[in-house]
């Protein structure tokens, strides 16, 4: 039997959730026996080479590239999981959600106290993804199947959830593992 395939991505996140995944420590050895990794920063595979069983998404959507990647994951992954607060509610990047994009850009590139921008240029190269008006939780862009809260979700929570998904056995999650911070 083929091993289940896992893919991961970090959108508008800080890679903390990926670090937490690595925090399962020696169980990583067990994990690579259980699953095969495809597109992920962990193995540095940049493009999907096959359909995937489980997709883990860290971070919400703050620009057009995030939306594109998320939609691609939705197409390729049978089960898609929001991993961490940013994927679930936008997280700290969403602190800008009650501020207009023009104000944010002005603060970052024009008027910030440490900004040097002689020609007052805002980043506008066509190669750059466009910033969205707000930071969106993943489930407001595509359908997400499961949510693992935490900032980051604890390694144990990620492990329990992955094992439950791979083995197909429902698990009771201990109280101490579900945290929003």
């Amino acid at each position: 039997m083929n091993k289940p395939v896992v893919a991961t991505a970090s959108l508008a996140g800080c890679f903390g959730c990926h670090m937490s995944l690595l925090d399962i420590d020696e169980r990583l050895v067990e994990l690579i026996d259980l699953v095969e990794f495809n597109k992920s920063p962990i193995d540095d595979i940049k493009k999907f080479t096959k359909d995937v069983d489980i997709g883990l998404i860290e971070g919400g959507c703050c620009n057009t590239e995030n939306v594109e990647v998320l939609k691609e994951f939705r197409k390729k992954c049978k089960t898609l999981i929001s991993l961490g607060e940013c994927a679930i509610m936008g997280g700290l990047p969403a602190l800008r959600n009650d501020i207009t994009v023009s104000e944010c850009l002005a603060e970052a590139y024009l008027d910030g106290p440490t900004t040097v921008n002689e020609h007052r240029i805002l980043p506008n190269d066509e190669e750059l993804p466009i910033i969205l008006n707000k930071v969106y939780p993943c489930h407001e862009v595509v359908k997400m199947d499961y949510f693992l809260p935490g900032c980051p979700p604890s390694a144990d929570l990620i492990w329990e959830a992955l094992v439950a998904l791979i083995t197909g056995e429902e698990k009771e999650i201990p109280y101490a593992l579900i945290k929003y911070d």
Partner: peptide
């Protein structure tokens, strides 16, 4: 409300 638990 705006409940950003990680920074609260």
């Amino acid at each position: 409300g705006n409940h950003f638990c990680p920074s609260c």
